[in-house]
Amino acid sequence: MPTFGEELRRLRVEQGMSQETLAAAAGLTQGGIGNMERGLNSVSGSVLFRLCRALKVPCTHFEEILAPEDEQPPMPPAPKPRGRPKKAEAKEPAKPKKNPRK
């Protein structure tokens, strides 16, 4: 199965569009189109809609390629914090000590 970027490039070339032409039709930048084709940029729903409208394909065309979240590999665990842990904040401000010399 092709990646989103590969399929985007295939559709664009099939329709005889340059990256600049597609970008102008979708209201995006040429660099953004190039990055999507290389898999460097993720695609939001609104960008996908604009691309599909410019390419004259239904948004469902990319349905199998853009799998739902539960079918994608899980995210790696968050890195452990480094350094000394922060001190717990005091609940009440410390009361000033009375000066015994007065």
Rank of each mutant, 00 (worst) to 15 (best):
P2H: 01
P2K: 06
P2N: 04
P2L: 02
G5R: 01
G5C: 01
G5N: 00
E7F: 01
L8E: 03
R9G: 02
L11M: 08
R12A: 00
V13H: 12
E14M: 07
G16P: 01
G16T: 02
M17P: 01
L22R: 00
A24M: 09
A24L: 14
A25P: 12
A25N: 13
A26F: 07
A26K: 06
A26T: 14
G27W: 13
L28F: 12
L28M: 15
T29M: 10
T29L: 07
Q30H: 10
Q30V: 13
G32L: 02
G32W: 03
G34I: 03
N35A: 15
N35K: 15
E37M: 04
E37L: 02
E37P: 00
R38I: 04
L40N: 15
N41R: 15
N41D: 15
S42W: 11
V43M: 08
V43H: 10
S44R: 15
S44W: 08
G45E: 09
L48P: 05
F49G: 00
R50W: 05
R50P: 04
R50I: 14
L51I: 14
C52H: 04
R53K: 13
L55M: 01
L55V: 02
V57Q: 07
C59P: 02
C59R: 10
T60F: 00
T60W: 00
H61A: 03
H61N: 03
F62N: 02
E63I: 06
E63P: 00
E64S: 11
L66E: 10
E69I: 07
E71M: 04
E71G: 07
E71L: 08
P73D: 11
P73C: 10
M75K: 03
P77C: 02
P77N: 03
P79M: 08
K80A: 11
K80M: 07
P81S: 04
P81F: 09
R82S: 09
R84K: 13
R84C: 06
K86T: 15
K86N: 13
E89T: 11
K91T: 12
E92P: 00
E92N: 07
A94N: 12
A94Y: 13
A94D: 14
K95N: 05
P96M: 09
K98P: 09
K102R: 11
